[in-house]
Amino acid sequence: MTQITKVPSHEPTTIYIKPSTGLAALNLKDLWAYRELIYFMIWRDVKVRYKQTMLGAAWAIIQPVLTMIVFTFLFGRIAKLPTDNDIPYPIFSYAALLPWGMFVGALNQASRSLTSNQNMVTKIYFPRLVLPLASILSGLVDFVIAFVILIGLMIYYGVTPSPNALWALPLFLLLTVVTALGVALWLSAINVQYRDVNYALPFLTQFWLFITPVAYSSNLISEKWQLIYSLNPMAGVINGFRWALLGTDTGPGPEMAVSVLISLLVLIGGLFYFRNMEKTFADTI
């Protein structure tokens, strides 16, 4: 057996273990200390996601493109839903399907992230936040792949993005991540004790799709309902994407502010709920 040479690589840090009371401190410092683990988890998710599939990463494109074709046929051709500024329906819906797909994928992956990594949770200490966070961020890779198709569509239909796109797109992408993380924190923590989440999630995302302007324009909603409608943070996300990419009139305004605010509230609430449940994860999972 080889003799291992021992060189203490760092000064021991002192750890205090005590029951966390009340609203547990968020302990984001700990999350920062484990940033490499986040990186490795994202990398693992990305590497493993399309293993042993025939079409591989093409799935990241097939899903939104097929949905776009179906939507174009049903809502564009048959129902003849109007789009903003007469933007061709395919690109109108695709620009919304991108963030929506990212959101739904993130919820699916992240709400299961704790239960599918059960042996990690019951055997090792690490900030549990790493798991939902990494599974959401790994969805960004699919987003980027599917985005290439959008660029193609924009060239084909001759749509030039507004100059705002450069700064606004990253911000709205961030808003998608924040919204997904906020919701996923609640769902993943509940899922540890009540696996009902796995069954409820498909319904949740389906109903959520109906109240989000993916297949239709939010301008179809009458003026007096607009503020209530924007309580759905995903409405803000998608309106923002359309505004930045396609130059619709659904840009920043009071409705957008409501969406952002709700999204932040869900995230903050989710963080505290998650942290508060975290201490019993290993016992109840």
Binding site: I17, K18, P19, S20, K123, I124, Y125, K279, T280, D283
Partner: peptide
């Protein structure tokens, strides 16, 4: 508890 998997 010592390895911080669960809280006291």
């Amino acid at each position: 508890i010592l390895s911080r998997v669960t809280e006291p």
